[in-house]
């Protein structure tokens, strides 16, 4: 967001909240007065996976072993840093599914994959402790702790990348995690469809946030087939996630979101040519 946009946005908000100052907040703010270019996509808080899984815990007991995509071997780094960053996000998200499935072997495998992928992009040191904790807690079947360590692994790896001035790669880790998380979520919701469940997929601000970030990255890094494919996928799923709210997301749309995200995850995991 550039300075001009921010100034315009701040002015709009100052006007909109002028009557509601001091202790009493304004009953409403004029979102429509936000300048068109101020989509706020750069100032979006991307939730940690635990936030989604916390809701899923309350919705019932899905058949997580069915959702889990078993990794027989360690994830092997392939492609450039962009692809490996995406893979890392996907693997961490798979860790959450493995925790839900209470599959200790799989979680341990994922902990080691996190280490291997991190090493390939130079952030192993930052996540080594987390990877060890993931394996250790999985051994003891302490699932709540594993989930917390996975959240922190995601945070640590993104942080380490930002310290290496690779904020765009950090975004790709988040994107990879979001794609696999959304695929898993869609799969769970589709298996036992409910409006409440489908509404969890109403995440247009995140789809838009990642699309804009990816466009910027694609522009900077030249043509990249994988990034172009993901960009196309995000444009496909964005309207399926509902515009005004998520109450109207249909079972068909849930399946379509899951299918598209699944294809993108496969592309991320595909061996680079």
């Amino acid at each position: 967001m550039n300075e001009r946009t921010l100034c315009a946005l701040a002015s709009a908000l100052t006007l909109a909240t002028a009557t509601g100052h001091a202790a009493t907040p304004a009953k409403s703010i004029s979102v429509s007065q936000f300048p068109k270019e101020a989509k706020l996509v750069e100032q979006v808080i991307v939730p940690v996976p635990s936030e989604v899984f916390a809701v899923l815990d309350k919705l019932g007991k899905p058949n997580w072993p069915e959702v889990l995509r078993s990794q027989k071997n360690l994830a092997t780094p392939t492609g450039g840093k962009e692809q490996i960053s995406l893979m890392l996000g996907v693997v961490i998200a798979e860790g959450f599914v493995a925790v839900e499935a209470e599959n200790g072997d799989e979680v341990k495998n994922i902990g080691n994959s996190v280490r291997s992928l991190s090493k390939a992009i130079g952030v192993e040191k930052a996540v080594s402790r987390r990877a060890n904790s993931i394996v250790e807690f999985a051994d003891k079947r302490r699932w709540a702790e594993v989930r917390k360590e996975l959240d922190l692994a995601l945070t640590d790896v993104r942080q380490a990348m930002m310290e290496l001035n690779s904020e765009s790669l950090a975004q790709l880790v988040s994107l990879g995690g979001w794609l696999r998380g959304t695929e898993a979520l869609a799969s769970v919701v589709a298996k036992n469809f409910s409006r409440d469940g489908a509404e969890l997929l109403h995440q247009p601000v995140l789809a838009e946030h990642f699309r804009v970030r990816l466009e910027l990255l694609s522009g900077n890094s030249g043509k990249d087939d994988l990034l172009t494919k993901i960009l196309g996928g995000l444009q496909t799923i964005r309207p399926l996630m509902g515009t005004e709210d998520g109450s109207g997301i249909t079972e068909k749309e849930v399946r379509e979101i899951g299918k598209t995200c699944g294809e993108l995850v496969s592309a991320v995991n595909a061996k680079a040519k």
Binding site: L13, L40, A54, V205
Partner: peptide, 13 residues
């Protein structure tokens, strides 16, 4: 000068 930050929140949390 208030500052807006967009955030994805989930019903149920």
């Amino acid at each position: 000068q208030p500052k807006p930050i967009a955030h994805q929140l989930f019903k149920g949390n």
